[in-house]
C-alpha cells in the first residue's frame, strides 16, 4: 500500500527506464511493445476524461482513434506518391512531417468529436452508448467500402513520419516521442480537471439540474469535454499508425472501442493514471497468455469477467489506499 502520488511517480519512472531494460536484455521488442502500451494509455486517458470523470459511456472512441490513424496514413500516402489530396476544388499536398500530422489529427478528431458529440449528447444512458457505437460503425463500414486507401486491406506506410533532427525509425526514439505525448496528455487532462470546465464536468455527472441552477450549461460542458477526449484519442491513433506503419479498418472497429474501454476500467476509472496501468496489464496479459496458450482470449475473458464481478475498482485500487476508495463503489 502506498499513496496514489507515489505510485504515479513510480509508473512514470518505470516507463522512462523501459528502453534501458530493453538494451540490458538485448531485446528491442520490449521497447516496441511498451510504445504500444503508452499509446493505448494515451487513448485510455482521453476516454477516461468523459467516461470516468464525466460519466459518458462512449462505445465509439475507435472513431477518433481510427480517424487519427487514417489521417496519418493518408497524409503519408499522398506524400509518397506525390499526388495532392483533392477535396472538392481544393488541393492539398501530403506530408511526412509529424508536427503537421499531429496538428491535423488533433484538429480533425476534435471536429469529428464535435459532430458526433453534438448529436449523441441529445440522448442519455444506453441510447448514448449505442449512438456513439453507431457513428463509429459508420466510419468503419465507410473505410471498408472506400477503395482509394486500401479498403479492407488497409494502408501501409513505407517509413514512419519524421521530425527534424530525430530518427523516428529508431524504436527507442519513437518510444520517447510517445512517452512525451503521454506526459503532455497527463498534464493537460490534470489541468482540465482542475479548471472550471473539469469541475463542472464532474458536477454534471452527479446532477445536471444543479449544474444548470448555478448558471452553467451542462450540455456545453459535456460537449467540450467530449471534443477534448476525442482529440486526445485521435492523437493516440496517429501515433499508433506510425508505430505499426500500417492502418486498417480494424482500428475503427467496435472491438477497438471495447478494448480502450476495457483498459480504462481494468486500470481503474476516476484515476488519471489508471489507464496506464490498465494498458500495461492488458498488453502484458495478451502477450503472456498468447505465449502459453493459443486460446488466450478465453482466459483474458475470464479474468475480465472476474474483475468486473468481484473487483470493480480496478487494479490501481489494489495497490493504493486513499480517500477515493468510497467513490469507486458507485
Amino acid at each position: 500500500m502506498m499513496s496514489e502520488k507515489k505510485l504515479n511517480f513510480l509508473i512514470l519512472i518505470f516507463l522512462f527506464l523501459v528502453p534501458l531494460f530493453s538494451i540490458l536484455l538485448n531485446d528491442i521488442y520490449i521497447t516496441t511493445l511498451f510504445s504500444k502500451i503508452v499509446i493505448l494509455a494515451i487513448a485510455g486517458i482521453g476516454l477516461n476524461l468523459i467516461l470516468g470523470y464525466g460519466g459518458m459511456v462512449s462505445f465509439g472512441h475507435a472513431a477518433f482513434f481510427g480517424l487519427g490513424g487514417y489521417i496519418t496514413g493518408i497524409l503519408a500516402f499522398h506524400f509518397n506518391n506525390y499526388e495532392p489530396i483533392q477535396i472538392l476544388v481544393f488541393e492539398f499536398e501530403g506530408t511526412n512531417q509529424l508536427l503537421f500530422v499531429w496538428i491535423f489529427s488533433l484538429i480533425f478528431s476534435s471536429l469529428l468529436a464535435l459532430f458526433i458529440g453534438y448529436f449523441s449528447l441529445r440522448t442519455t444512458g444506453v441510447y448514448f452508448i449505442m449512438i456513439t457505437l453507431a457513428f463509429a460503425q459508420m466510419l468503419y463500414y465507410f473505410s471498408i467500402s472506400w477503395p482509394t486507401y486500401g479498403g479492407e486491406d488497409g494502408l501501409s506506410l513505407s517509413l514512419r513520419n519524421q521530425i527534424p533532427f530525430l530518427n523516428t525509425m529508431d524504436p527507442i526514439t519513437f518510444f520517447y516521442i510517445c512517452y512525451v505525448w503521454l506526459i503532455i496528455a497527463i498534464i493537460f487532462v490534470k489541468f482540465i480537471l482542475n479548471s472550471p470546465l473539469g469541475i463542472s464536468l464532474k458536477a454534471s455527472k452527479e446532477n445536471d439540474d444543479r449544474v444548470r441552477s448555478v448558471g452553467i450549461n451542462p450540455k456545453k460542458v459535456k460537449l467540450i469535454s467530449f471534443m477534448i477526449s476525442g482529440a486526445i484519442t485521435g492523437l493516440a491513433g496517429s501515433l499508433y499508425a506510425d508505430l505499426n506503419r500500417f492502418v486498417s479498418p480494424t482500428i475503427l472497429s467496435w472491438q477497438m472501442s471495447g478494448e480502450i474501454m476495457i483498459l480504462v476500467i481494468l486500470g481503474g476509472m476516476f484515476r488519471l493514471y489508471g489507464p496506464i496501468l490498465g494498458a500495461f496489464f492488458y498488453i502484458i496479459l495478451e502477450q503472456f497468455l498468447g505465449g502459453i496458450t493459443e486460446n488466450w482470449q478465453f482466459w483474458l475473458g475470464l479474468i475480465i469477467l472476474l474483475e468486473v464481478l468481484y473487483a470493480k475498482a480496478g487494479i490501481m485500487s489494489f495497490l493504493i489506499k486513499d480517500k477515493y476508495d468510497d467513490k469507486t463503489s458507485s
Binding site: 459511456v57 462505445f59 452508448i129 471495447g258 474501454m261 476495457i262 476500467i265 483474458l300 475473458g301 475470464l302 479474468i303 475480465i304 469477467l305 468486473v308 464481478l309
Partner: peptide, 8 residues
Amino acid sequence: VLATFALI
C-alpha cells in the same frame, strides 16, 4: 457491457 464483452 464489460462483463458481456468478456463472455463473448
